[in-house]
Amino acid sequence: MSAPDRLTCDEIRDLAPLFVTLALDEDEMAAVRAHLATCGEPHPELAELGEAATALLDTVEPAEPSAGLRGQLMAAAAADLAEGRHPASATSSSAVSASPVPALASTESPAPAGVATPVGPVASPAPAPVVSLDAERRRRRPGPGWWLAAAAVIVAVVLGGWNLALQRDLSAAQAYRQGVNAALQAAGQPGSVAALLAADDGSVSGLGVVAADGTVNLAMRGLAPTTGSQVYSAWSIGADGKPVSLGDFTVGSDGIAVVATKGPAAAPGAVLALTLEPVGGARAPSGPIVAKGVTAGAAG
């Protein structure tokens, strides 16, 4: 049913029971809202019927959502702060810090050429991504163990198109491949979770695996080289919604990071994210999210 451009007060009264129960189509709902936005009449019939309709919500049996939902929500909310989608984003740094966030850090020995250099003690965590609901739906439906079954595809995605690009830097390409292989090997261990990490524009991509004992393997490509005191910080955000730092690292001109570190064990649904921080050791993420991904059970 199509709605007239302008409704009269009598028509609003007539449509009231359908409006408060959302039984009008979108055009009609919009027409009623448009009327109410400008009408000087109080239209008490809407409140009268609307309050009764609202009471229906209390007839619903409460139900417990999955434990992972909390982590996803908190990760997405933290990402809002970091990426400017929340009104308080202008002060997001303090807002995130104010929330209790466990943290910390990792360091690693000097890395070979072509491999990211982990930097000192670390900072904490952060944000996570609002995941496409459709993608998330698809992600959640497969059972455990799907990851390895799709390993060949994953290798193609992670490494695809990389060979030619890296002919100019074979040592870096080799380091990246080794990093991916190490991550895939870790993904084969029981209790591991894995995520494809990517930038929104696809310029950065890679693989992150968290083993059952908390060992983390990251292999990333396409990262902008760090300069000065800049570091990339890796974060894990689990079901409790508290981001935990996995460590900081720097990246050279080849844009590759292969990092092995240790953090808390992660359950499927945890978010792995990389942020670019002005300095290492931050207690909370303040820089932009460079890449992110939601973990799925890797080994069955």
Binding site: R70, P87, A88
Partner: peptide
């Protein structure tokens, strides 16, 4: 409104079962 994650966490814990019950219904 101030961007405090703890507040969201607490609100979620407070109403998650009602919210999920409604959405599932």
């Amino acid at each position: 409104a101030a961007g405090t994650l703890d507040a969201l966490d607490t609100l979620y814990e407070r109403y998650k079962t009602m919210a999920f019950g409604i959405a599932r219904r």
